[in-house]
Write a protein that binds this DNA or RNA. Structure first.
Length: 588
RNA sequence: GCGCCUGUAGCUCAGUGGAUAGAGCAUCAGCCUCCGGAGCUGAGGGCCACAGGUUCAAAUCCUGUCAGGCGCACCA
């Protein structure tokens, strides 16, 4: 598994040493444990640490300390990779990496560029990621936005770690909600056409967008010269209203920088008879029964709390029926894993959907549901209330227009999905360090700016092959490189946990290190005013004239090495932001 | 009542069973002759909700209690 040159070198060394120890009879090693390399809490202890000795203690029936000493002794023969090996109580093995190896990280980043960090962890497994899937009964709101940001980032993350990902939006364009929408719009139309006594459906959709929709439909009917309009209303409202809303959803998502590979229609499931066929399959397998005039799915067999109705007394299918058909369809398309991102208020549906998955003969973990907790919108520190019924809500579009897609996405991804999120509109607009997205983007832009200045002065950013690494000898240099080297392992861990938010934290940390380094160390030689020639062209001063903040002498070799280092940081920030779906600007 | 999620610094939150629990904000004290101050440095601040248990090792796993959020339809 490619997790960067440093970890790969250490892991293979460790593996080799353990094999040798077994061959020599030093250790029994009946099973080879999973080798985990941690970054020690205190960087004076070493660069990487392994707890393998402590984990082996039980099976070897020896003190962890003893085992650690055996492994450490053998590791000391590998001075090509490891500079120092220390055993710390109760059985840590702390490893200090040979300096030369660190600089290979920069060469690796240069060689791989935008591919740096990618891996084959997923082994090409096929994943179907379904998210947003909001009913086309109104505009997208902030909760959808969070699901959208998470889904987009997760898709990129899985793609980067070797999965084959398809993104899909399930359109609930059938059923009761659609009917309600049609009735609501129709009532609105009639009112607009001068029928003041029309009854607005109870539980109908209100809000300004319904009226806008009504106006659009009337305009459309008139444009098609349908006169009178009234007889066409019902058809228009059921056939056209949701399509217009769906178009808006599509354009909102596009404005949010999201792309879906497939749009799957619920209506289609009914039209092709898929729902009927699905129920036939379940019936044949003995998972359905009739009671009180309704048709039930015996989901309790698979661990659900109670059995569920799939066809009501009145003969109509429930939402669950088409949803089961939809999931059967997905399963039938041959994916290794189905991932659904749902709002936390749907958590009660997980068991019954997994029951359906099992009923079709698949393991229930073939379906993984990620629940996203609610978003609280804050303005001026006050909660902005959102009520769909009353039509008061802040839409995703409005927020994106106000704060930008980048800030919105990044903020959505600064929390675990499990955690409720306070979205502070004022903070999101603020362009300062308080706003994490600007902080990270600024790090990228700052490097770009530095390169522009360098170019103006005729200083090229060299390739790693021509750089003398021995000049990068401060702890700050190594700290920065170590952060860069952690990126591939971080991506793998994030993908495995399906937690893109880890990446936002990593990027903030990397950006902070870059800003600190930049402040502390000079990269380009200073230009003194007297060096400006008559055409105002900047000329570099003599190399030996440059003094860094700490009094270090800035040589051309050091400038070259640091430019190279910065390019690597820039690449990693750009790659990371790319996975989050956030742009990496050259200028801000 | 049952289920899911959450409880970590004054606030908002990170923290893949490992060492002395971290970041941002807020507070206080500092840093621009120079590559972008949209930046940097430092200080204070913690019974990781509580109580048991598992483990060589628990903020992390298990059980219970308390508190908050969200669900418990022949709606979607």
């Amino acid at each position: 598994m490619p997790v960067g040159v440093v970890r790969e070198a250490v892991l293979s060394t460790l593996r080799e040493v353990l094999e040798d120890a077994r061959a020599a009879g030093d250790l029994k090693l009946t099973t080879l444990p999973a080798l985990v390399l941690d970054v020690p809490k205190n960087n004076t202890w070493g660069d990487l640490a392994t707890t393998v000795a402590m984990n082996l203690s039980a099976s070897e029936r020896r003190a962890p300390r003893e085992i650690a000493e055996i492994i450490a002794g053998r590791l000391r023969a590998h001075s090509d990779v490891l500079e120092r090996i220390d055993v710390a109580p109760p059985g840590y093995i702390n490893l200090t990496i040979k300096r030369d190896l660190w600089f290979q990280v920069l060469a690796e980043i240069e060689a791989q560029g935008e591919r740096y960090g990618r891996s084959t962890l997923g082994l090409g497994k096929r994943v179907l990621l379904e998210f947003v899937s909001a009913n086309p009964t109104g505009p997208l709101h902030m909760g959808h936005g969070r699901g959208a940001a998470l889904g987009g980032a997760l898709a990129n993350l899985l793609l980067a770690t070797g999965y084959e990902v398809t993104t899909e939006y399930y359109i609930n364009d059938a059923g009761r909600q659609m009917k309600l929408l049609a009735e609501s719009v129709e009532a609105c139309c009639r009112k607009l056409l001068g029928q003041p006594d029309v009854e607005f459906p109870e539980d109908g959709y209100r809000g300004a967008y319904v009226e806008e929709l009504a106006q659009k439909l009337i305009a459309k009917a008139e444009a098609e010269k349908r006169d009178p309009v009234l007889p066409h209303l019902e058809r228009l409202c059921t056939e056209e209203a949701y399509r217009l809303l769906l178009d808006e959803i599509k354009s909102d998502l596009q404005g949010f920088g999201l792309h879906f590979d497939t749009w799957f229609s619920e209506r289609g499931l009914f039209e092709t008879g898929a729902v009927d066929r699905t129920l036939e399959v379940l019936k044949a397998k003995g998972h359905l029964f009739e009671q009180d005039g309704a048709l039930w799915f015996r989901s309790t067999v698979f661990g659900d709390d109670k059995d569920r109705v799939v066809r009501k007394q009145d003969g109509e299918f429930t939402y669950l029926a088409s949803d089961i058909a939809y999931h059967q369809d997905k399963l039938g398309r041959g994916y290794d894993l189905l991932i659904n991102i749902w709002g936390a208020d749907h958590h009660g549906y997980i068991l019954r959907m997994q029951a359906a998955v099992e009923a079709f003969g698949y393991p229930k973990d073939r379906l993984k549901v990620i629940l996203v907790q609610i978003v609280n919108l804050l303005r001026g520190g006050q909660r902005v209330t959102m009520s769909k019924r009353a039509g008061e809500m802040v839409t995703l579009r409005e927020v994106v227009e106000e704060v930008g897609a980048d800030a919105a996405k990044f903020i959505f991804l600064t929390r675990r999905a499990d955690s409720q999120l306070d979205f502070d509109l004022d903070l999101a607009k603020q362009q300062s360090a308080e706003n994490p997205v600007y902080y990270v983007q600024y790090a990228h832009a700052r490097v770009a700016s530095l390169f522009r200045v360098a170019a103006e002065r005729g200083i090229a950013v060299p390739s790693t092959g021509s750089v003398d690494w021995t000049v990068l000898n401060s702890p700050d240099d190594l700290d920065l490189i170590k952060s860069l080297s952690e990126y591939p392992a971080l991506l793998e861990a994030s993908a495995q946990a399906m937690e893109p938010h880890r990446l936002t934290y990593y990027l903030q940390d990397l950006a902070a290190r870059l800003h600190a380094y930049y402040y502390k160390h000079r990269i380009l030689p200073p230009v003194l005013e007297r060096e400006l020639d008559s055409q105002d062209h900047l000329k570099p001063v003599a190399p030996e004239a440059g003094q860094g903040r700490k009094g270090e002498t800035l040589t051309p070799a050091l400038t070259a090495a640091r430019l190279c280092l910065f390019r690597s940081v820039q690449t990693v920030i750009r790659n990371g932001l790319g996975i989050l779906g956030v742009t990496a600007p050259e200028r801000m």
